[in-house]
Simulated assay, not measured.
Amino acid sequence: MRVHVMDLNIGDRLLVDTFNHYGLHLLSSGTRLRSEDISKLLMHQITYVDIAPKEELEPPKHDFYMLTEESFKELRILYDQAIKGTEELFEEAESTSKVNGQLVQAAFVPMAEYVREQRDVVDLLLELNHKDDYTYQHSIQTGILAHKLATWVGYAEEEALQIGVAGYLHDVGKCRIDQAILVKQGELTEEEQAELAKHTTYGYEIIRNSAYRYPISLVALQHHERIDGSGYPCQLRNSNIHAYTHIVMVADIYSGMISNRPSHIKRDLLTVLQYLYQLSFSKIDATIAHTFISRMIPNFIGKRVRLNNGEIGKIIMNNNTDFFRPLVQIEDRFVNFVSDRTYEIQEIMM
Score class of each variant (00 low, 15 high):
Ile51Asp: 07
Leu78His: 03
Leu78Asn: 07
Gln45Leu: 07
Leu67Asp: 04
His62Ser: 11
Asp80Tyr: 08
Ile77Gln: 10
Ser39Leu: 15
Lys40Cys: 13
Lys84Glu: 13
Tyr48Ala: 08
Lys61Leu: 15
Glu74Asn: 07
Lys61Pro: 08
Met66Gln: 07
Leu57Pro: 00
His44Asn: 14
Asp63His: 03
Lys84Ile: 12
Pro59Cys: 06
Thr47Gly: 08
Arg76Ile: 08
Lys98Asn: 09
Ile83Pro: 07
Tyr65Ala: 06
Ile46His: 01
Ile83Glu: 04
Leu75Asp: 04
Leu41Asp: 02
Ala52Cys: 15
Ile38Leu: 07
Ile83Arg: 08
Leu57Asp: 00
Tyr65Cys: 03
Ile77Asp: 09
Lys40Tyr: 09
Ser39Val: 14
His44Pro: 05
Ala52Leu: 15
Ile83Asp: 03
Lys73Ser: 13
Ala93Asn: 00
Gln81His: 00
His62Arg: 13
Thr86Asn: 02
Val99Ile: 10
Glu94His: 13
Ile51His: 05
Pro59Ala: 11
Leu67Gln: 08
Glu58Gly: 02
Glu87Gln: 14
Glu74Asp: 11
Arg76Ala: 03
Thr47Lys: 14
Ala93Thr: 01
Thr96Gln: 04
Arg76Phe: 06
Tyr79Leu: 01
Tyr48Asp: 12
Tyr79Pro: 02
Glu55Gln: 11
Lys40Glu: 14
Ser39Glu: 15
Ala93Glu: 01
Asp63Glu: 10
Val49Ser: 06
Pro59Ile: 14
Leu57Gln: 06
Phe72Asp: 06
Lys73Thr: 09
Asp80Cys: 04
Thr96Val: 03
Glu55Met: 12
Tyr65His: 09
Tyr65Asn: 13
Lys84Gly: 01
Ser97Arg: 13
Ala52Glu: 15
Leu41Ile: 05
Asp80Met: 04
Glu92Leu: 11
Phe72Ala: 09
Pro59Asp: 13
Val49Glu: 05
Ser71Ile: 11
Glu87Gly: 11
